[in-house]
Design a protein around this nucleic acid. Structure first.
Lengths: 201, 201, 201, 201
DNA sequence: AATGAATGAGACTTCATTCAT
DNA sequence: CATGAATGAAGTCTCATTCAT
């Protein structure tokens, strides 16, 4: 309860001030609580940051995993469900994107962040790889190794997120998602269809 | 010169300590200069950081612009030259990638940095868009709007950079570049050819 | 009772963490009680510390006073009983010595603590002085004023305690006590006998 | 210069407020300097405290060592010189005594303090033991082992210091020193003479 | 009586910036 | 131009005390 309240405030603060600009004061002020309370519920500021990242990672993980499981039975359906999950309104908000990249910026030096992010990525990558392999095998796609498709997908998630973050004025989740659908329709044309483009884009 | 010496040291320091861990001391110590000298050549720490980002942006800009101009005359050649420039050994080093994402992660400063590098990004995007339009027109590619190809390219640059940064143990510029070449060969099959894949990938 | 339970825990905590490292938390945790309970039974932390010192002082006082009263009738017997009481297993434990010197070291609080234990020290000094006077008079010892013997005794108590505290690896109450007995045998040779020394010492 | 200024201020502050009550503020305020300067010249508060203890220990060590070396050639002269050094006006001031006992109170838990104090004590103890052995041998004193005399001397130094600290209103270095001279005159009567007592004491 | 979450003053420490040399 | 000691604001963390339950 208090913990979640503080994690929410931390997300707000990082989105607004960055990790470096996030202080105990900014967090507790946003949460409307007293300064000392963070060290009461979390051991330290560092721990608060880690728990915040953990929360985001879990939320993201649950989102795509559920999408994957609830999607239609076919591999393309499941793969597309995972793609869509990255741009779900619960996950892909300007605030949360800002926080993700704040952590990415530190990940090189903070083993904790890195391993946290890696674990989740790895699981998703493995599933995507399996789905691509199924599709490639079933469709007779021989020119691109499934591993490469999965790699490009991972890069596209992050790359598009960064576009959305950097140019929030054109922020449109649907367009973002269409980028990836387009890519898939080119790679596996019999299994994904090109999205219809609105003129304006 | 002193200024460049300090900017280089700043890059080293940010790569090693992050922006938050970069202090006047870490910078001047790496540069082998005295503490007080930064405020002599730069107005403030903030200014030093901005100049550092600007330096990277310019270096990057010069790289792809020169590649673009020196490339073969055809649009595909020129587009591929821009792609390659992103993974040139001068530009795409672990240290510099770390600095780029350190800046991307600093939400609070994003405004400042955005205003610094917007023009450069825009220029590259415009050129790529023009090239894609030429190719699409000449090749009769009608299903994907050139704007979208250009957008996906931008996302791929950043997304692949982030992969390289996050998983430095598989750091291979050539593989990175192949991802994009693969994408282009799928979008404009008559103008780009699929790279040959090594078995290991 | 709760109060005594907390005082005991305070002694344990001071011995382990020092006065500075002793907090409401360390005390209540050792006591196995809830954090808020101290301010319930004691006015404040300061008050808890004072009561703890007072407890030690009283315990010490009772010890030597009882020893004094129960000893043989002769003045030397009674004086030696007081000496022995300082090294009684109930009084002279590593933990309690640590607490004593923790308090002695707290200059800022010395005034407070002095006012608490002054009377007790004075009472013991007066009794010792009286006993020395009796012995000196009865034995015709004219070269040392009784007051000086009493003073040296007081210094020896504390000095030997500090040795015991500082070098706990050679902690031997019997040796400590022998130091003082030796001193007395030199000052009042007809009334105290030199202890036998074990070779090792 | 600045360092010594801060060490002096630390001694003043510990004497007045104790170690627990000594803060960066109290120290720098006494020194008339700015708050941040301690961490500039010393790494941390803990380091400042250790350097302060080191300074006192060195000063004390130099004092008795010089006294020992400059004293008359006979063993009694040298031993008495060491005794006297403990009550030299440079060493035995109310302020410095307060600081010593502040550190003694922490010594049990701070290995640094302990080892610092131990080293100095050991050297002095060894010298005193040697002198006592010489005297005992030369004078045919067989009833007290030299080791015990040396031990009692050590206890007396600290014990008398504590008396002086606790009852500063009777602070008289000469009386203190006489206590020890009296003890020695009783132990080695042919080599030390009883001091003359003023009536008042 | 008892609990323990919450508060907020105050401690230590870091570090951008200044300025006498 | 260059140095680096000095300053002091600001950040993290601790902890005595309070108070609703």
């Amino acid at each position: 309860m208090r913990r979640q309240q503080l994690i929410d405030a931390t997300i707000d603060s990082i989105a607004e001030n960055g990790i470096g600009g996030t202080t105990m004061s900014t967090v507790t002020e946003i949460a409307g609580l007293s300064l000392g309370i963070v060290n009461f519920h979390f051991k330290s500021k560092q721990n608060l940051l880690e728990e915040t990242l953990l929360f985001l990672a879990k939320e993201h993980h649950d989102q795509w995993l559920e999408a994957f499981e609830n999607a239609g039975l076919s591999a393309p359906d499941k793969l597309l469900a995972i793609v869509d999950a990255h741009f779900h309104p619960q996950i892909c908000t300007p605030k949360k994107l800002a926080v993700w990249f704040a952590f990415f910026g530190e990940a090189g030096r903070r083993e904790v962040y890195r391993s946290l992010i890696n674990d989740i990525d790895q699981e998703r990558y493995d599933i995507a790889l399996r789905l691509c392999s199924e599709i490639a095998e079933g469709g007779g796609y021989k020119d691109i190794p499934p591993r490469q498709v999965a790699n490009i997908l991972e890069a596209l998630y992050d790359g598009i997120w960064l576009e959305l973050l950097t140019y929030p004025e054109n922020f449109q989740r649907s367009v973002a998602r269409d980028h990836i659908a387009t890519f898939l329709s080119k790679v596996y044309p019999d299994h994904f269809q090109m999205p219809a483009f609105n003129n304006g884009d």
